[in-house]
């Protein structure tokens, strides 16, 4: 099919709109000049500066730990929730269950953050690393469930039936057939939870306490003061690592689609 000129213009404009701003940030992270609009030659000094910036490195470390812990937790609970929803068509409170699972997907972050903070205050828990981790688990669980649920929905039930027909007990059929087949989706969900956690500013701001500052919180504080090459460099590192994760996710989900 040949594309009309209008379609090509739309495509080019749309893609440029999406990518140019990010590309500019990435390019200017190699700018030797401190001024945003002046190109002072190529330099990697801001990247070296990042490593020396202790508060930033500390925040990165906190963010990574939070993201890792919350992604693992969210993956376990989210997978269970998707299985509960797909496999059990009838149980008491199924409607409520589905509601509680999928509403967080559309809830503004500011509401999720506020309500979770109030929970931690009511429970009188000290705020810090663990409250951020739990809060991130709470909102990323729904995303994991969404991805695993979608995979379960288009998983042909005849695979598990074939296993049962060949003598596998329900548990054995799940472990030997269903689980290996949905594993890519679970891994994709886990990585999504990881990137969402790494990216979150609002919920972390509500639920963090003294001594637990995440990378987005630290960056946000600096961004409010203006554009600096150092933030450009930090952003570039983040963009590149997230893009790599996305490629892995795409690869994981592509593989199961071919199956």
């Amino acid at each position: 099919m040949r594309m009309s000129r209008f379609n090509i213009v739309s495509l080019v404009f749309g893609i440029a709109f999406l990518y140019l701003p990010i590309l500019i940030v990435m390019i200017y992270s190699f700018n030797a000049s401190k001024l945003v609009t002046v190109w002072g030659g190529f330099s990697t000094q801001w990247y070296r500066g990042l490593l020396a910036n202790k508060p930033l490195m500390d925040a990165t470390f906190v963010s990574l730990r939070v993201a890792l812990a919350s992604a693992l937790g969210a993956t376990i609970i989210g997978t269970m929730a998707a299985l509960a929803l797909r496999r059990h068509r009838r149980f008491v409170g199924r409607g409520l269950f589905a509601f509680m699972l999928f509403v967080p997907l559309v809830l503004p972050e500011i509401m999720t953050g506020l309500s979770l903070l109030l929970l931690f205050v009511a429970l009188d828990w000290d705020r810090g690393f663990w409250t951020i981790t739990l809060a991130h688990m709470a909102f990323t669980t729904s995303f994991v469930a969404l991805i695993v649920d979608a995979r379960l929905a288009d998983l042909d039930p005849s695979y598990e039936e074939a296993a049962r027909d060949l003598g596998a007990s329900p548990l054995s059929a799940f472990m030997r057939v269903t689980l290996p087949m949905i594993l890519p989706a679970i891994a994709a969900g886990c990585l999504l939870a990881f990137t969402l956690s790494l990216d979150d500013l609002v919920i972390a701001s509500f639920t963090s306490g003294p001594g637990a500052t995440t990378l987005p919180m630290r960056l946000y504080g600096q961004m409010r003061l203006g554009v600096t090459p150092e933030i450009n460099a930090a952003s570039t590192v983040l963009i590149v690592s997230v893009t790599l994760i996305v490629i892995v996710i795409a690869w994981l989900t592509r593989r199961h689609r071919q199956a």
Binding site: I22, T37, M223, S235, V246
Partner: peptide, 27 residues
């Protein structure tokens, strides 16, 4: 995929990118 990939990169950074573009002394 090209359309969706930027959505994965940090929300904060994507907004920040526009500061650099839109500011009075911006690009």
């Amino acid at each position: 995929t090209l359309v969706v990939v930027p959505f994965w990169t940090s929300f904060l950074i994507r907004i920040y990118a526009w500061i650099a573009l839109l500011k009075p002394e911006g690009l």
